[in-house]
Nucleic acid binder design. Structure first.
Lengths: 219, 219
DNA sequence: CAATACCAAGCAAGCGCTTGGTTTGTAAAC
DNA sequence: GTTTACAAACCAAGCGCTTGCTTGGTATTG
C-alpha cells in the first residue's frame, strides 16, 4: 500500500518525510481531506474546538464562526453535527494506520518495531494530528452507536499491528505480561500524555518520552 | 488520620475491611455524603449518569428522575448542575486519598507499596466507586476553571503518595525511568482500564490485573 | 410552628437544523 | 470572447425544541 523505500540514517528524518508522503497519498486517494480545502479546514477547526471545549459544548455556530461562514452553511457540507465528529475520527484513524505501517516497515527487530509504534503513536497524539487524536479518545461516547461500530472496525486494523509485535516480544522472552493487556495499558498511558506532555517546557522530546516508555517496561 | 491496625493474612480481607471503615470515618467527618441519605443517593446516581452519557448529555431532568423527584427540586440541594459534578469529584478524591494511605500503611517494601497503590487505584476505578472515578477522568473539562483549581489541590495530595514510592524504587535501582513520567503513564494506563476491563468475563481478577501491570514493568 | 423537602408550572436562552433565496466558480455554447 | 447554464457554496432568518434554572406554593418532619 504505502512503501517506505529506504531506512535513512536519521530516524527522525524518515519519520517526517514519510509522514508527509503518506498524508499526500491519502489525500490523493480521497481517504482524508486536504487541510487546505474547505472541508479539510473545517475538520481541522472542528478537531481543535472539540478537543478544547468538548463535542457537546461546541455549537454549530462555533464551528461555522471558526471557518468564517454562517451556521446554516455547515449543513451544506455535512448533514448533521455528528457527521463532522465522525469524519474527524475516521480520517484520523486512516492516517494513523498508514503511519503505523510505515513505522513497522522501517524497523527490523521486534523491540525496534515496538519502539517505532510507540514513537508513532506519541507523535500522533502530541504532534499535528494531536487534536484529532484527543477527540478520538475523549469524545468517543458522543458518537451514535452505529457510527461507533463503523469506527471500531477501522480501529481493529491498526490494533492488530500492535498485537503482532507484542506477541513476538513475548515469544522472544522480552515481555512477561499478556500482550493484549499490555496493549491496552499502553493505549491508556500514551493517550494520557495529551493531558500533560508539553514538548516546549521541560525539555523532554518525543524521542526522550519514547525512551521513558521503553525504560518503564525495562526494554 | 486513618489507621489500619494490623495486616491480616489475606490482603483482600484487609482491603475490604479497611475500605468500609474508611468510608464510615469519612462520612462521620462529613467529608463524604452517606450513600443512604438523599444527597448521597443523588451523587451516586449522578456519577452513574455522568459516566454513562457524559455530563453535558445528562439533563437535570434525568438526574431528578433517577432519584424520583422533580427537576426543580434538585436546586434545593445544589445551586447549579455543575456543583453536582464538582461534589462527585471532590468526594471521590477524598475517599481515594484515604484508601491510598491505607494501602501504603499495609505494605512494607517499596515494591509492595507500589503494588498496593496500583491495586487500590484499580479497585477505585473498577469497583464500587468506579463510576465516580470515571467521571473524574473523563468529565474534567466540564468543570469550570475555578472548580478545576479546587479539585486539583486535592489531587496533588495523593499524587505525592505515588511519587514518594516511585522515587524510592528508583533509588533502589528497581526502576530506570523517571518517577514523574512513570506516574503519569500509570495514571493513563490504570484509568483506561475502565473502558475495557470487565471482571465478569475472561476471568482476569483485579489481583491478576495488578500482577499484569507489575509484570509489564518487570517488577 | 418553623425549617426542610418537595411539586407544578414555566421562563429565557441556546440548541441543532431548515428554508428560500443569492452569490460564486466553471465550463460548454454560441 | 462574450453569453448561457447550472451546480456548488453560502447567507439571513427563524422554527421547534430542550436546556438549566426560578418561582410561588404545598406537604412533611422534628
Amino acid at each position: 500500500m504505502f512503501q517506505v523505500e529506504l531506512k535513512a540514517s536519521y530516524a527522525n528524518r524518515v519519520a517526517v518525510v514519510s509522514q508527509n508522503q503518506i498524508l499526500e497519498s491519502l489525500i490523493a486517494e480521497n481517504l482524508v481531506s486536504d487541510p487546505k480545502g474547505a472541508r479539510g479546514r473545517l475538520l481541522t477547526e472542528a478537531a481543535r474546538l472539540f478537543r478544547e471545549k468538548g463535542y457537546e459544548r461546541t455549537t454549530v455556530r462555533d464551528l461555522a464562526a471558526a471557518v468564517g461562514i454562517q451556521s446554516g452553511s455547515l449543513f451544506h457540507h455535512f448533514r448533521t453535527k455528528e457527521e463532522i465528529l465522525k469524519a474527524v475520527m475516521v480520517e484520523t484513524i486512516r492516517l494513523n494506520t498508514a503511519l503505523m505501517q510505515a513505522a513497522l516497515e522501517a524497523a527490523d527487530t521486534s523491540r525496534q518495531k515496538l519502539r517505532g509504534l510507540i514513537r508513532a503513536e506519541l507523535e500522533s497524539i502530541n504532534g499535528q494530528t494531536g487534536e484529532a487524536m484527543a477527540v478520538l479518545v475523549f469524545e468517543w461516547r458522543s458518537l451514535s452507536a452505529p457510527s461507533q461500530g463503523e469506527v471500531l472496525e477501522l480501529r481493529d486494523i491498526y490494533e492488530k499491528l500492535w498485537l503482532d509485535v507484542l506477541e513476538s516480544l513475548k515469544r522472544e522472552g522480552a515481555l512477561e505480561a499478556d500482550p493484549f493487556v499490555v496493549r491496552r495499558m499502553l493505549t491508556g498511558a500514551l493517550s494520557w500524555t495529551v493531558t500533560w506532555y508539553k514538548p516546549e517546557r521541560g525539555g523532554l522530546t518525543l524521542d526522550g518520552l519514547t525512551d521513558q516508555v521503553m525504560a518503564m517496561m525495562a526494554l
